[in-house]
Simulated scan of single mutants.
Amino acid sequence: MISTKMVTGPDGHYTGVERLAVIRSIEVYQARLNTIMWSLTGSVLGLTLLIAASTWLAVGRALRPVEVIRAEFADVSAHHLDRRVPVPSAGNEIARLARTMNNTLDRLEAAVDQQRQFVANASHELRTPLAALRTELELALNWPENASWPQVVTDALGDTLRLQHLTTDLLLLARLDASNVSPPNSRELDLADLVRDEIAHRTTPPHITLAPHTPSNPVLVRGSRSLLARVLGNLLDNAERHTTSLITVRLTHDPDSHEAVLDVIDDGPGIPVEDHQRVFERFTRLDDARTRDAGGAGLGLAIAQRIVATHHGTLTITPGNHGAHFKLRLPTQNSPL
């Protein structure tokens, strides 16, 4: 560093300028700079640690309900589907996640309960004809001299056919439940032609009159002909078991809703309004006193409704003063699904 100084004589007059060179070592500045840098580094490091610790505590506290939900959900099993995850009191995303998981568990529990009930009912239905078949054969073998073998064979054949029909229905329901796409062999077909063919090939008891009403123009729908024929057959079987003398089958086309409407009406005692939904449940028999041979296994209407659902249609019961009125609606070919 260079500085200047004015010089005066003994008498006080200005005589000139004296230049002084002051040298300060650079190590002094370096030491100060190092001190500042270490101070800043320590401050930044301390602040970083403070932020990290605060973040860890905050995140841990925020995610603690998630851990509780995870632990509870991990304990849920097929035997403890009644358990539910806790829902935090705060109405945030975690609370919405917990409610969604509980709703999913509700649906899962209902599906498992329905499946267990279905298996129990199916086992019961299969056990009955098997027990009857075994009893008939054991009695005939124990007393062969007293057995009417043609009658034994006839009864055994009847039980075998019933077993065959029941297993066929169960397999069809299982296949329909597992199907999330359109029915197999789906194609365009004339529903009016299908109704006429099925009624023409059907043999009804002598005391029952089957009155079909179908349009002359085609009613085009898309689906499986065999499955839709099964729906009509099941509806007619149900009507025959309960009608007094007349079954009416009416097919129309609703141009406003772009739907084919099939009505199957009988003049029997009808179905109580409170049972309109229950009749479509599997293994449902409204008349517990009737025999199983007359009433069937209670799968016909359940199968019919399930088939209609796979065809994007509906099968319902229309309230009436007399008889049962089943109404089937299917989208026609020019209607959006």
Rank of each mutant, 00 (worst) to 15 (best):
R19G: 03
T35S: 15
R282F: 00
Q117C: 06
E27W: 05
L126E: 07
E109D: 14
V181I: 10
A294V: 09
Q115V: 08
A111N: 12
T316S: 10
N146R: 13
E281D: 14
D287I: 13
A294T: 04
R187T: 13
P150L: 05
I69K: 03
N217L: 11
L299V: 11
E136C: 06
M6L: 14
T168W: 06
R290A: 14
H312L: 06
M6N: 12
S245I: 10
R306C: 05
L49S: 12
T48K: 05
D197T: 14
P206W: 00
D237P: 03
R116L: 15
L20K: 15
G320N: 04
H258T: 06
I69A: 02
N34Q: 13
D254L: 12
L81N: 10
H322P: 05
R107F: 06
I51L: 12
V219H: 08
D169G: 14
D287R: 15
A111P: 07
P205I: 05
V87R: 02
T243F: 03
T48P: 04
R61N: 05
R175Y: 01
L171P: 06
S257K: 13
V17P: 05
V308I: 15
D155A: 03
L299Q: 04
Q164M: 05
G42C: 09
T332A: 11
S77K: 12
A156H: 02
R96Q: 11
S43A: 14
S25T: 13
L262R: 10
I69R: 04
R202C: 01
A178M: 06
G233E: 04
G295D: 02
Y29P: 03
A95Y: 04
S54C: 08
L137K: 03
R329W: 07
V119D: 10
V66Q: 01
A74F: 10
A211L: 15
T48E: 00
I303S: 03
N185K: 14
L191D: 07
T318G: 00
L63C: 02
S39I: 09
R306D: 04
A229H: 08
R162L: 03
G91A: 12
E240Y: 02
T248W: 07
V85Q: 07
G91P: 15
L299E: 01
L171W: 08
S77P: 08
V119L: 15
L220R: 14
R202Q: 03
R175S: 10
S182T: 13
E240Q: 08
D256K: 12
V279D: 03
G323Y: 09
P331M: 08
V152Y: 03
P255T: 09
E138K: 07
V261H: 04
A297E: 05
A260G: 11
